[in-house]
């Protein structure tokens, strides 16, 4: 609630900002031949922060973006802007004793969330550890490029990592433009139209969960997932940071489906639910299983719980 409450405070500033913007816009318009400058280019340039848009502006932005995408990919892409559900705080569980490291989740995520195929961006990284080695906080012993014929390999265990959706996210703290923030349902999101690409958040993330579009994302139009969310899986731009959003476009519904990685997991190692609902399976995990969170000592309080069901 607070996040959206902030908007009302900001409204007062908007008038002044509009003034400045108007001045800048007119100056720019005067400087450039009007015929050359496409209106949408300037609109995109001066698009405001997602949280500052009012309903009317939001509608305009969405229709512009949908038009842009339709032009670019030749496909109708729906962008939703669903707000967080009240009384929901998402949590994620991952059963390390079950994961076999088959990487089905990695590619399900790529397809669901329109990640760049070339250059490759994976939101999920599966790490392989040697059993009997010095446990997962010694990350150097991890290998993410393992490629055997069959998994699980004897003597190894696997630990997938992705955005841990921290309660106290270091990436949000450091962002100089507030382009990334934590939503009320606990999902840390990025406004791809506000990020300046300074990559400070990537340096701050202890989980290597943030990924940068080093060039224009290579997203084949035929493989695109057209059901998107503004803060989630809509196609990204070159030079912005992106990350896992717990499939915000799927899960932000009263009866929404599980995230793509949970659905695909062949061994059922991945669990997902509402932390505020005492009946949810994630709460069952936390209350009945031995759990740990990655890099607990950094006090980031992830909402991503690793557990042992055995």
């Amino acid at each position: 609630m607070t996040k959206y409450g902030k908007n009302t405070v900001r409204e007062t500033k908007v008038s002044r900002r509009d003034l400045l913007k108007g001045a800048a816009l007119s100056a720019a318009a005067a400087a450039l031949p009007a015929a050359d400058a496409k209106a949408s280019v300037w609109e995109a340039f001066f698009q405001r922060h997602f949280q500052e848009l009012n309903a009317r502006e939001m509608e305009k932005v969405i229709s512009r973006l949908e038009m842009e995408y339709a032009e670019k990919y030749g496909k109708e892409i729906k962008i939703s802007t669903t707000k967080p559900l009240p009384g929901v705080l998402f949590g994620y569980g991952l059963d390390i004793s079950r994961c076999i490291g088959c990487r089905r989740c990695v590619y399900a995520c790529v397809e669901e969330n329109n990640q760049s195929r070339d250059p490759q961006i994976h939101w999920i990284t599966v790490l392989r550890f040697k059993k009997g080695d010095k446990w997962v906080s010694d990350m150097e012993s991890a290998d993410k490029y393992y490629n055997p014929d069959k998994v699980p390999e004897p003597g190894y265990f696997y630990m997938p990592t992705q955005c841990q959706q921290c309660e106290n996210p270091p990436c949000v703290k450091v962002c100089p433009t507030q382009a990334t923030w934590s939503e009320d349902d606990g999902i840390v999101v990025v406004d791809y139209n506000w990020c300046i690409g300074c990559r400070y958040c990537m340096a701050a993330c202890p989980y290597g969960a943030r990924h940068f579009n080093w060039m224009k994302p290579g997203l084949p139009a035929e493989e695109i997932n057209t059901k998107t969310h503004y803060l989630g899986n809509r196609p990204r731009y070159s030079g912005v940071v992106e990350k896992c959003t717990f499939c915000i476009q799927r899960t932000r519904n009263e009866k929404g489906p599980y995230p793509a990685c949970v659905e695909i997991c062949p061994v059922g190692a991945r669990k997902f639910g509402n932390l505020l609902d005492p009946k949810s399976e994630i709460r069952y995990c936390i209350e009945n299983k031995r759990i740990f969170r990655l890099k607990e000592d950094l006090n980031t309080h992830p909402k991503f719980f690793y557990f042992f069901a055995t």
């Binding site: 433009t177 382009a179 990020c195 300046i196 690409g197 300074c198 579009n213």
Partner: peptide, 12 residues
């Protein structure tokens, strides 16, 4: 030179 979107530097 380092940032990915120098065009959006006005956000700062």
């Amino acid at each position: 030179a380092d940032i990915g979107r120098p065009d959006r530097v006005w956000h700062l």
